[in-house]
Simulated assay, not measured.
Amino acid sequence: MVENRPFLNLLSHLVLIVGVVIVAFPVYVAIIASTRGPNDFMSGIIPLLPGPHTLENYREVLFAGVSTSGAPPIGPMMLNSLVMALTIAIGKIAISLLSAFAIVYFRFPFRQLAFWAIFITLMLPVEVRIVPTFKVVADLHLLDSYAGLSIPLIASATATFLFRQFFLTVPDELAEAARVDGAGPMKFFRDILLPLSRTNIAALFVILFIYGWNQYLWPLMITTKPEYYTIVMAIKRMADVADAIPRWNVVMATVVLAMLPPVLVVVLMQRLFVKGLIESEK
């Protein structure tokens, strides 16, 4: 039985409100800054009301670029980030589904050793193996390409582990029934396992899309041509100017635009995302 305690209800709501304010206030300041002029934030006083330069700032970053920082228009860079994020998310899920399916449902020598070899790579993030990875990508002539941006980040031990744990909860009777009906391994995978994995796939897609969208170090290393810059690189270049004051209004306009695709993905897939994280019965 849940007790009705008004004081505890009020306290819990106050804590939630304070948490929302702490998280949302910097975002609100960024949105306000994107509507202001270049000198409005130089006085040390943060304006809290929108300014008159909204269309001007967003038009500049979308179509003209920022010449003082060498940043081209961010439209193509947002497209580059979108291609990179989608390729990483879809590639990680596809490879992880197949590898987890092979580990759980096929009996082959050193099966557990293969799984633990994949799992141990969790201790080797991109930053640790970035030099040999860069050497391989350079030798394959994948610098300044979408393949170079995405393929080295596709493998995912975390997704493989999660799909393996889920496949282990699927009753063996389903595989036996599919075998009796004459279904081969791939038909069983396509018609039974994939529909059952829908919520897990959605939850991982949201996480992996945001992971790919926010990549900075790897794109910075392998791109030298502006046509392959990503949106996160653009924000960094706009904020770091050598002989001038950063135009924070334009930087914040870029930040707001960079937030939109991840927010849109989370909003559209919120129900499946939450269900995939908390659902225990499949």
Score class of each variant (00 low, 15 high):
residue 165 Q to M: 09
residue 213 W to A: 02
residue 109 P to M: 02
residue 89 A to M: 06
residue 32 I to G: 05
residue 91 G to L: 03
residue 98 L to G: 07
residue 178 A to F: 01
residue 228 Y to F: 11
residue 155 A to W: 03
residue 42 M to E: 11
residue 77 M to C: 00
residue 32 I to K: 02
residue 116 W to C: 09
residue 27 V to T: 13
residue 131 V to G: 10
residue 32 I to Y: 04
residue 213 W to D: 00
residue 26 P to C: 12
residue 10 L to G: 14
residue 27 V to P: 11
residue 75 G to S: 14
residue 128 V to S: 03
residue 100 A to V: 07
residue 187 K to I: 15
residue 195 P to Y: 02
residue 191 D to P: 03
residue 265 V to R: 05
residue 229 Y to K: 12
residue 256 V to M: 06
residue 210 I to Y: 04
residue 124 L to A: 05
residue 60 E to H: 12
residue 28 Y to I: 08
residue 216 Y to S: 10
residue 167 F to P: 13
residue 58 Y to A: 05
residue 136 V to Q: 13
residue 130 I to Y: 02
residue 264 L to T: 12
residue 49 L to H: 13
residue 247 R to C: 09
residue 235 I to H: 11
residue 106 F to M: 15
residue 124 L to T: 04
residue 132 P to H: 06
residue 252 M to H: 04
residue 222 I to F: 10
residue 83 V to T: 01
residue 265 V to Y: 01
residue 100 A to R: 00
residue 181 D to W: 01
residue 119 F to I: 04
residue 72 P to D: 13
residue 234 A to E: 07
residue 94 A to K: 06
residue 49 L to N: 12
residue 219 P to R: 05
residue 40 D to H: 09
residue 203 A to S: 09
residue 73 P to W: 01
residue 120 I to E: 13
residue 174 L to T: 06
residue 250 V to Y: 07
residue 51 G to C: 11
residue 264 L to N: 01
residue 15 V to D: 10
residue 171 P to F: 06
residue 45 I to W: 10
residue 214 N to R: 06
residue 139 D to M: 05
residue 92 K to P: 00
residue 67 S to V: 08
residue 8 L to V: 00
residue 160 T to N: 08
residue 244 A to S: 13
residue 227 E to P: 00
residue 52 P to C: 11
residue 240 D to T: 15
residue 195 P to M: 08
residue 4 N to W: 07
residue 209 F to A: 04
residue 239 A to E: 11
residue 30 A to M: 15
residue 162 L to R: 07
residue 160 T to G: 04
residue 187 K to H: 14
residue 149 L to M: 05
residue 270 Q to F: 08
residue 2 V to E: 15
residue 85 A to Q: 00
residue 194 L to G: 09
residue 238 M to I: 11
residue 228 Y to M: 05
residue 20 V to C: 14
residue 88 I to C: 02
residue 180 V to Q: 07
residue 274 V to T: 09
residue 127 E to K: 03
residue 158 T to A: 12
residue 263 V to L: 08
residue 14 L to I: 15
residue 76 P to E: 11
residue 224 T to W: 02
residue 24 A to I: 03
residue 215 Q to W: 03
residue 90 I to H: 03
residue 80 N to Y: 08
residue 215 Q to G: 04
residue 184 G to W: 02
residue 93 I to R: 04
residue 33 A to C: 13
residue 198 R to E: 08
residue 146 Y to C: 00
residue 111 R to E: 07
residue 118 I to L: 13
residue 192 I to L: 09
residue 102 A to L: 09
residue 165 Q to V: 01
residue 235 I to C: 06
residue 264 L to K: 03
residue 66 V to H: 12
residue 228 Y to Q: 00
residue 6 P to Y: 11
residue 117 A to I: 00
residue 169 T to L: 08
residue 57 N to M: 03
residue 12 S to G: 10
residue 158 T to G: 14
residue 81 S to P: 07
residue 1 M to H: 13
residue 65 G to E: 01
residue 207 I to P: 04
residue 21 V to H: 07
residue 46 I to T: 15
residue 183 A to S: 15
residue 16 L to P: 01
residue 188 F to A: 10
residue 175 A to N: 14
residue 189 F to W: 10
residue 255 V to G: 07
residue 31 I to R: 14
residue 64 A to T: 14
residue 100 A to M: 05
residue 103 I to S: 12
residue 218 W to T: 02
residue 143 L to P: 07
residue 157 A to V: 03
residue 93 I to P: 02
residue 20 V to A: 13
